[in-house]
């Protein structure tokens, strides 16, 4: 009996104490977009004997602010920081995972993927210039589709968000007017529309309002089985959103020509590249050597890049191509000797 209690106590202790034994518990915070995946990776990693990585979604801007304030070991952001900012704050940056932002629509009678839109058309819709679904600009793109004379309700994120950043970055790249009037950022001054809180809020409004259009992370489109529209890419094609088209966008990007991986994947070249492909970046302090918590975090990402692809794909994310993870390893060696 006594030994049973002792064994139980020991089991409990061994369950709880690793946090102490493994002195550096590692905390990360930031992007909501990578939260599910990092939670999954962290769980897999700890089950294989790795350190416990606690990642919390507080938003990309929060991730940047918290890593600058040094309250976390690493931050995550869907928007890359320019190298000048990184150096000023003493940070390094590398991509972690790739996904896509997809327009969702509520158009009765229109099948998922049936509606086709170009970047300029999306910009005109979000500028409030194209107000109905049977506007000539949309009809001319969809000869085989009968579009109703329904008013368009634009839905955007109400909270600041990395998803928004990638969406408006794309609109700014394809529409000079958007670039001049609205610009880009994690939150912008929207010319029109209603704001939903989080992806869930946007999804809820799009599902509820007939004639609505909103932009969502790919996982929400899949999980909520929503009707999405295809967007024309830089090569003039309309690729289906998904692993193949996201990965092609990632592969077409010339990461080697950037410094600190400062690259946004939207409007990437390549026939099959998805036009609104988004990357999540990890931010870590540039320390004299990779020790303690920083080393723990790098070990975690090294493990994730090597063994985390299946988990990523199961959650509808796209893992980084091998060429990119090799470049990241080299970047670590160069910056954290």
């Amino acid at each position: 009996m006594k030994s049973a209690i002792a064994a139980l106590a020991l089991a409990l202790l061994s369950g709880f104490v690793p946090g102490f034994a493994n002195a550096a518990e590692i905390t990360g915070a930031g992007s909501t977009f990578v939260y599910p995946l990092l939670a999954k990776w962290s769980d897999d990693y700890s089950k294989q004997g790795g350190a416990k990585i606690n990642y919390q979604s507080i938003g990309s801007g929060g991730g940047i602010a918290q890593i600058k304030a040094a309250t976390v070991t690493f931050g995550a952001s869907d928007m890359p920081l320019p190298p000048a900012d990184l150096h000023e704050a003493g940070l390094i940056q590398f991509p972690a995972v790739i996904g896509g932002v997809v327009p969702a629509v509520n158009l009765p009678g229109v099948a998922p993927g049936a509606l086709r839109l170009t970047g300029p058309a999306l910009a005109d819709i979000y500028l409030g210039r194209v107000k109905t679904w049977n506007d000539p600009e949309i009809v001319s793109l969809n000869p085989g589709l009968t579009l109703p004379a329904l008013a368009i309700t634009v839905v955007h994120r109400s909270d600041g968000s990395g998803t928004t950043f990638n969406w408006v970055d794309y609109l700014a790249k394809v529409s000079p007017e958007w670039k001049a009037r609205v610009g880009e950022g994690t939150s912008v001054s929207w010319p029109t529309g209603v704001g939903g809180k989080g992806n869930e809020g946007v999804a809820a409004y799009v599902q509820r309002i007939k004639g609505a259009i909103g932009y969502l992370e790919y996982a929400y489109i899949l999980q909520n089985k929503m009707t999405y529209a295809l967007v024309q890419n830089a090569a003039g094609r309309y690729p289906e959103p998904g692993k193949a088209s996201f990965q092609e966008a990632a592969a077409s990007a010339e990461w080697s020509k950037t410094s600190d991986f400062d690259l946004v994947l939207t409007n990437a070249p390549g026939d099959g590249a998805y036009p609104i492909t988004a990357t999540s970046f990890i931010l870590i302090h540039r320390t004299a050597g990779a020790t303690g918590a920083v080393k723990g975090a790098l070990d975690f990402f090294r493990w994730a890049f090597a063994h985390g692809d299946a988990s990523a794909e199961a959650l509808d994310y796209v893992p980084l191509p091998a060429s990119l993870t090799a470049a990241i390893e080299a970047y670590w060696q160069a910056n954290l000797p």
Binding site: G19, F20, K52, N54, N199, G201
Partner: peptide
Amino acid sequence: QYLSFDLTRPMANMPVVIFQFALS
């Protein structure tokens, strides 16, 4: 994400978990 008894570290709590999970 993990069970932790260390009060000097980030700590799980009901309201924030509900908030995060409800909108996932």
